[in-house]
Nucleic acid binder design. Structure first.
Lengths: 303, 303
DNA sequence: GAACAGTTTTGCATATAACGCAAAGGTTAA
DNA sequence: TTAACCTTTGCGTTATATGCAAAACTGTTC
């Protein structure tokens, strides 16, 4: 029942069975069955379902409120069994991609360690894909959800991007008025896992995919940002990286009527990834909750 | 997990796998497996097991307390989904100290159950200090307010006491004309949590504390009352216990110009104690209101 | 120390539940 | 009306739960 309740909460949170299925690494049909079973056990209808939207019933609202508390109490109980009202302590090994770690995670660590001085954090900023099991990483911060079913993920924030260049670059090169124009520009390319050769954009009535190329590639955004600031080319970077530069006029957003995506279907979200371990290090949850709290309250340059 | 938790609670309550199996209509081996699975999921040992007895580990105690709360929350949530504004029903577990429960609570129960026939009451009369969370007691009746901040209390009535002895005892022993005289008498002592060795009295211009001793001690007032009636000694008991005996001359109040106290500063009040639970069993409030109504309208031998 | 009675545990076979794939059906915006 | 996306259903496979019977364990009594 508690597992079913967790599924229900995730479904409501994402407003979709299939989205919840992705996050929970389950098939959509299993989500359907879980909600069916929960409704059957409770004897009430929780959701008015359609393929396009889910609506909470009145009883669904009542149950959601109570179930959030139930799950929180359960989590707390589990945690109190491991910590026994002691001050959180122990180690936490974190891997995060460089730019996000440097700009958004590292600044949050001192306050966390002030709050929990007995916790030791080991953090690596690098842009290679790490195997959490092999390298014994407790927590990785990544864009997108890994397909590895032995890992769990929790969304930290969305990862909106924009395509921008410096005023200097734009004054010396052809105008960029539509996506295809990017082909004629030096595009600074983010390498992730495989070589990126397309940028994807969408607006209100179409999605396009543009073949792009350029003379600078990097797995992380930092070198690309620096190159763009110096007028080397056009770059697609996350808003949390470039917002301040845009504000100061060091970078100009191009193709404002289009939303750039990170792959064919989405702009990618940033997730906390951790091992699906029946005996998890409680500091993992502690740090994730801390991050969620910080990201939700501060809106780390998400939009 | 919730199902496993319910099995655990029943096992602890009955102190036996096989007894729990009978009540839950399961095979004993299934109980073993449920507890195995629960311990595995939690990563802790909850019970030291032998074929003759089960002992809760420290972590088992922690888990028991939290699991009772979890199950109560879950039950409340289920109940709030089904019927609202319908006839009160469900269970109510009450613990009260023996003498007060026998004399003042038990007589009120039949009328309460006549009024709410769908409620089931389980009441225990005993003088040990119960942990409401661990023993899953909905409502305890006690003298004084507990220091446990997870509990709430509501005053039922004051607890005036008097010091008395039987005429037979008094005719065979020295007069009791001032508090210090009590030291020379066999005083029947109420044990609560720690050994009582003083009686406290006050009048219009002074408070005194008298060291007393005697050859009979009990946690509850009933054995002391019986011994006093038979001339064994002097006793300090609540008025609601002795008023009728005083009226019939079976007991004589001593030191009428002094008011006996239960501790250094007060005579102690009687409180209804219940868990500070955001989703309380509504029957608790119902019963407390009923008790308040009865005690205020009837003045249960309060003075 | 041995016998005994009651209890938990283990091995095993069977029953039940969970799960994902693929196809069918439903919904809504264009 | 069509297309895209989503939920649902049928089905086969896999995983888990369950009870029976026997073994092992525990504590009391003689």
């Amino acid at each position: 029942m508690l597992k079913l309740t967790r599924v229900f909460i995730k479904v409501v949170e994402l407003g979709s069975f299939s989205k919840a299925a992705k996050v929970l690494n389950m098939a959509p049909s299993s989500i359907t069955r879980c909600i069916d079973k929960l409704e059957s056990e409770l004897g009430v209808t929780l959701l008015k379902r359609s393929t396009r939207q889910l609506l909470l019933t009145d009883k669904g609202h009542v149950f959601l409120k109570g179930s959030n508390k139930l799950v929180a109490d359960s989590d707390y109980l589990l945690m109190s069994l491991s910590n026994q009202n002691t001050e959180p302590e122990g180690s936490l090994r974190i891997s995060t991609f460089e730019s996000f770690g440097r700009l958004n995670i590292c600044p949050l660590i001192p306050e966390f360690l002030d709050r929990y001085p007995k916790i030791n954090i080991e953090i690596e900023l690098d842009n290679k894909m790490v195997d959490l099991w092999v390298e014994n990483i407790d927590l990785a911060i990544r864009i997108g959800i890994p397909e590895d079913s032995s890992l769990k993920s929790r969304k930290l924030l969305s990862n909106y991007t924009c395509i921008c260049a410096s005023p200097g670059y734009l004054s010396k090169h052809d105008n960029i008025e539509q996506p295809q124009d990017l082909s004629m520009h030096n595009c600074l390319l983010l390498n992730q896992q495989r070589q990126r050769i397309y940028w994807y954009l969408k607006n209100s009535h179409q999605n396009v995919k543009v073949a792009v190329s350029g003379n600078l590639k990097s797995k992380g955004g930092t070198p690309l940002l620096e190159a763009a600031l110096q007028g080397l080319g056009v770059v697609q970077l996350a808003n949390w990286m470039v917002t301040d530069f845009v504000k100061h006029g060091d970078l100009v957003v191009c193709l404002k009527d289009w939303e750039p995506l990170l792959n064919e279907s989405s702009n990618g979200n940033i997730y906390a990834i951790y091992k699906d371990n029946p005996y998890p290090n409680p500091n993992i949850r502690l740090f994730i909750d801390y991050l969620i709290d910080k990201t939700h309250n501060k809106k780390i340059n998400e939009d």
